[in-house]
Computed example of a mutant assay.
Amino acid sequence: MVEIKQDGNGVVFRVKVQPRASKNGLAGDLAGVLKIRLTAPPVDGAANEACCKFLAEIFATAKSNVEILSGHTGRNKLIRVADVTVQQARALLEK
C-alpha cells in the first residue's frame, strides 16, 4: 500500500518515475512507493512536468496543486498534492 501522509491541506507521498514508457499510467506499489510510467524523456524537466500533469489528472485538480518537493533530478520523488485528504488520495490511486 502506498504510504500517504497528511500535510497541512494536502497529502505527501513518494513516487518512482519510469520515463520513456510506451504510455502514461500507474504501475502499482513498490514497498510503499507509487510507481508511475511516463512517456516523457528525462531531459530539461520534461518528465517532471509530465509527472505533475499526470498526477493532476488523477486527482482531478489543477496542475498548480501538484508540487515536487524533492527528487527533481532523479527517479525517486516526494510529491505534495494540495486540497486532497488521505482518504480521497487512497480512493483515487486504487482505481
Rank of each mutant, 00 (worst) to 15 (best):
K23M: 13
N48T: 15
G10Y: 01
R90K: 12
K35I: 11
G10V: 15
V2N: 10
M1W: 06
L78K: 04
T61I: 11
R14Y: 07
I4N: 00
N24R: 14
S64Y: 15
T39R: 15
E49Q: 14
D7E: 12
L92H: 04
V66R: 01
L92A: 12
V2H: 02
R90D: 08
G25M: 04
L34W: 10
V15S: 05
Q87P: 01
T73S: 13
N48D: 14
G8A: 07
D7W: 03
E94M: 11
A62F: 12
N24V: 10
V33Y: 02
V11T: 01
F54L: 08
K63R: 13
C52A: 13
R20N: 13
I79Y: 00
G74L: 15
I4W: 00
L92G: 01
F59V: 03
A50C: 04
K77N: 12
A89V: 14
Q6C: 15
V86C: 11
L38H: 05
L34V: 11
G32M: 15
A50K: 12
G25N: 09
K16I: 05
I58F: 02
N76V: 03
V86D: 03
G25Q: 09
V11W: 00
V12T: 13
G10N: 01
C52N: 08
T85M: 14
V84F: 00
N48G: 12
A21L: 15
A56R: 07
L93D: 09
